[in-house]
């Protein structure tokens, strides 16, 4: 019989003895998560089971802001789980994830984590903050993204272009930050031996969207 209550789903997950069992139980829970199950999904991020972690991240993103406290409580020493948490926070776009995203983009060893963080920094929901707070968060995001325009991995620079484009949507044309942001995109457009055409192209597209005709 398929369990339907969340208690039963959590029980299933806790009792899973195989990788496949864990994946199936996580998928069932991630399908329609409730806030109380966020800590359980966060736990799955630390199980060293990539399939289950991907599914748990989807569930946490579906849960949205309700998943953030559990994500922020993660032990910083638990490196593998943190990498997945960065992806979840990037997808959720809650401003409480700001510090973790900034740190991940600047210091994480894995390009896949830095690229998720870059996208996330362009994707934070600022609507509920007062204008002064909005500006300060935008400046933090911009600073982190601009620093990452010289990341050694093309895919991270690509994500920085996407992040800058997203950040620009929350800025007004006359904001000083807009000019710095534009400089960052122009730098990403520059052809160089180690800058592939796809990065230049993505940055050009972002620039063209800053100035709609």
């Amino acid at each position: 019989m398929v369990p339907t209550s969340h208690e039963a789903l959590v029980e299933n997950l806790r009792n899973a003895t195989t990788a496949e069992g864990l994946l199936a139980a996580t998928a069932a829970l991630a399908q329609a998560p409730i806030a109380a199950t966020a800590p359980v999904l966060v736990e799955v991020l630390g199980y060293n089971n990539p399939g289950a972690a991907v599914t748990a991240v989807d569930g946490l993103i579906r849960l949205g802001t309700a998943a953030v406290p559990a994500l922020l409580e993660l032990d910083p020493q638990n490196y593998g789980a943190r990498a997945w948490a960065v992806r979840a926070l990037a997808g959720i776009g809650d401003v409480r994830g700001l510090e973790l995203l900034v740190e991940a983009l600047g210091t994480d060893v894995a390009a896949s984590v830095r690229r998720a963080a870059a996208r996330g920094l362009g994707n934070l929901a600022l609507g509920r903050l007062d204008p002064a707070e909005q500006t300060s968060v935008q400046e933090r995001c911009l600073e982190a993204l601009l620093a990452a325009t010289s990341d050694g991995e093309w895919v991270v620079r690509y994500a920085v272009a996407v992040g800058l484009e997203g950040l620009a949507r929350g800025l007004r044309p006359q904001d000083r930050a807009m000019e710095q942001l534009r400089h960052g995109l122009v730098a990403l457009c520059e052809a160089a031996d180690d800058n592939p055409p796809v990065v230049c192209l993505r940055a050009k597209v972002a620039l063209s969207r800053l100035d709609p005709p």
Partner: peptide
Amino acid sequence: LLACMDELL
């Protein structure tokens, strides 16, 4: 193609 890449980041 770029839109798909954006989603996969």
